[in-house]
Design a protein around this nucleic acid. Structure first.
Lengths: 335, 335
DNA sequence: CTGAAAGCGCTTACAG
DNA sequence: CTGAAAGCGCTTACAG
């Protein structure tokens, strides 16, 4: 900038005015400065600008996995809102590891992002208290924060799961297996609670062996599914599954499509919609969330804070939709 | 930092040493500084650090769409390599718009990212010349840069497409439709060239109406597919499709699965693998690329430059794999 | 082992 | 319409 000023024969401030499109520069001076800028290949250094202004026009997003088909539209939606507000998006994957979440979130704060959207992997976010006090706007999405209060966008996990399981019950199922995500993950617990409530409201008992929370690793899911289908532990085999998420559903579809399982069709309702679900045979009935909508809502809450809103933290709840396609309407087949 | 120094009764430089874990601080002093840091809730301001050091430990990634299932694993792979090198990832979607690509890339340069990975939407990257001259390492992936030389990672688009079409020919097809991405996109052109070469090598003529490059919009693809299937323009209907990418393949699967099309099965080979392709009926034969591998390779080339390599720009070529699953092995059905 | 001074490249507040 | 000085929060180069 100094070089530009020297070359154009003007002061630093005048260059700054031209670069930022401020008023109060004669058109002649402006032309000289522009010329100097292009011939020197000058580009404003935003780091210096940030240091002086205190605002970075960038926001951070921490989620589980950028490549997960549930999270990637969420991320894209956050990006679009950020773009509309002139901000860039820095994002990172926590890989469901609380330490990595913290490391990422704090690294983003050290870069002085204006705000943070977090899909938490951790259940204790007190580490963010100094950052929030220092003015970093923070919004949680998909799962609530732990031990701090903050804006939050959530799907109706409990109600969605309850409705999905009630749908299976309405189609005659009495022995329904639940394969979900790890306990400790809020969505997993809410969906499990929805399952138990639906069973309870229908007066159906739940055998311990029908409930299998755990990792979404396909080997784990296959093992638990096989156990429930073959009626281990002396209980009767399940005639239907309710799947706690996207990743689990895909594995269950594979399990149920295996040739040796085809003679006894098993019903399936999955939480989360996914591409091509309608083209599988049978097409998969799901409780759909709208990940882009979750991302958009969270980003809008964030920019509301950045625009100065300082009322109490609010929680936004987004409904789910049961989409009946076939797999959830299969009647119970006994062996 | 000044406050911390005052509180601990030490100089600024000593605080800097503690914050950066440099040697040469007595353990007693270090403890006092650490205490001051935690009680003040101090966190180093990386913007200031960047300004002084000239390096940001962040890299930028510009691609078409963060939510596209082809690009999201690529993005995640870049993130992992960046993380291994202690860098954060800032990314943005160009939405296949050259202006938006330029705007994003230059915004990232203004933030002084150390390097840039770009999936180009534009065919002229001379706008990056001043940035590259100023030291921003730049690597292109999936498509080559326009009018500048730079490191590049590419799939074997031509050879993959040629092999995919040859596979259909080997299964008896003589009238094969090609539905691809827009002309001007390098991958689209290479794959079309592969199609033409395979047809040519087999001595098969190509009717104009069998070649339909264009947007991946599903309405466009449906219309072109219907035209080829119904044999408009006085030509015979095609008995097989070669699809130029992921998005097109998914639409074609839907077209071919329609009840009114089922009596005359049409073969399909798609470029790009996708989740659940093996569970569709028929399972979809694809020419698979490895997007995570592309991302990883590009990021590794980038960090190689950042570590000081200044040899000639290099091009890395990654092979594709033909995965025969069923849809590509359907024999020709005449009406 | 420790610290004072200068400077990274901008913007702010002010004066002319 | 224009510019000189101070300062944002760090690190570098140097001295003790």
């Amino acid at each position: 900038m100094k070089d530009v000023a020297a070359r154009a024969g003007v002061g630093l401030k005048t260059v700054s005015r031209v670069v930022n499109g401020e008023a109060g520069v004669s058109s002649d001076t402006e032309r000289r400065v522009q010329e100097a800028i292009t011939s020197l290949g000058f580009r404003r250094n935003d780091s210096a600008r940030v240091l002086r202004k205190g605002t970075t026009a960038s926001i951070g997003l921490v989620l589980e996995d950028l490549a997960d088909p549930f999270y990637s539209p969420l991320s894209r939606a956050v990006e679009e809102v950020a773009r509309a507000h002139g901000a860039l998006l820095i994002n990172g994957s926590s890989a469901e590891d609380p330490e990595r979440e913290q490391e990422l979130a704090l690294a983003l704060c050290a870069r002085r992002v204006d705000g943070l959207v977090i899909v938490p992997a951790s259940d204790d976010h007190r580490y963010l208290e100094p950052e929030i006090a220092a003015g970093v706007a923070t919004v949680f999405v998909d799962r609530p924060p732990g031990r701090i209060a903050a804006d939050l966008v959530l799907s109706e996990n409990f109600e969605g799961a309850r409705a999905g399981v009630a749908h299976l019950i309405a189609h005659g199922h009495r022995r329904i297996g639940f394969i979900g995500d790890r306990p400790g993950i809020h969505t997993a617990e809410e969906r499990l609670r929805g399952y138990r409530t639906a069973m309870d409201q229908a007066g159906l008992p739940v055998a311990d062996s029908w409930v299998a929370p755990g990792s979404t690793d396909s080997e784990r899911v296959r093992a638990d599914a096989a156990r429930m289908l073959d009626g281990a532990d002396g209980t009767e085999p399940v005639t239907a599954f309710f799947s706690g998420n996207n990743r689990v559903t895909v594995t269950l579809v594979r399990v149920l499509a295996a040739p040796e399982r085809r003679d006894r069709p098993v019903a399936l309702v999955g939480f989360d919609d996914f591409e091509l679900a309608d083209l599988l045979s049978p097409p998969v009935t799901v409780v759909a969330q709208d990940p882009a909508d979750l991302g958009r809502s969270a980003a809008e809450l964030l920019f509301r804070r950045l625009d100065g809103a300082d009322d109490e933290p609010r929680t936004v709840s987004r409904p789910t939709t049961l989409i009946a396609r076939g797999s959830g309407e299969i009647p119970p087949h006994e062996r």
